[in-house]
Amino acid sequence: MRDLLGYLLKRAAWMVLTLWAVYTVSFVLMRSVPGNPFSGERSVPPAIERQLKARYNLDAPPLQQYWDYLVGVVTRLDLGWSTRLEDYSVNQVIAEGFPVSATLAIFALVFAILLGVTAGIISAVYRRSTADHVLMFAAVLGIAIPNFVLASLAILLFVFMIQIFPAGGWGTLQQIALPAFCLGLPVAAYIARLSRTGMLEMLTKDHVRTAYAKGLPKRTVILRHVVPGAMLPVVSYLGPAVARVLTGSLVLEKIFALPGMGSHFINAATQRDYTLAMGMVLTYTVLLFVMNTLVDLTYAIIDPRVKLR
């Protein structure tokens, strides 16, 4: 328990440090762009420009701005106002986008784990069979093909040529299925390879031989004695997998025109909405940190040999 607390504190400290570094660098960059976010637009009356500057706190000296924003984030979790989306605060945009992205990511991850683990188990149990070769070839394909290529081809095939899925929209299971499938497939390919390697290693262990020797049916041996041990590398891959799904959702949300955090972030980047982009980067950093910590904790619970560091 003491370990756990120390570990969590340490992670939190790292996270704060990272966030602070990201924030500082972003802030310096934001300030180093000449002019202000509104100087490029058509000229506005001085009174309105004053109002705008006051709203975005641009009239304060830079150090004061740096400090104010920091205080706002720390005390009120307030990420400021978007400079391009009128009357939207960054928090509102994130609150709208997050459920969509989270749903997509969860569906993709569940799908990836189910498919990947099943494929890995089958190809390890029937090693060197045709099924094994086909699955592992498919896995290499899945790793090599970028998910936006996959998504484009999937749209071409399943939306336009054979019309199974709707072209866009969000909400029903049918609308979630195709993006989640495209997002999860590369991760599934990785998981399939990892779980196959893990399975092959476990299959040679003594306790598995013992289990066979005492006459347990093959099914029980595999499911009870081999699979749990073989899943360890898969669990430790889940951290990177979450990161991958989050980055992948940037493009997939764009392709499928989903109103998630990813597409807001890309829009913020292309339209130079600095405050929104910075708020998003900070949010993504927190998300990834939390997910990684959770994965590490799970790993330590599953495998008591692992010490949290």
Partner: peptide, 14 residues
């Protein structure tokens, strides 16, 4: 520990 892809996209905006 910095999610680089996001930071790079942020950089590109500048």
């Amino acid at each position: 520990s910095i999610p680089f892809i996001f930071v790079v996209i942020f950089l590109v905006t500048f």
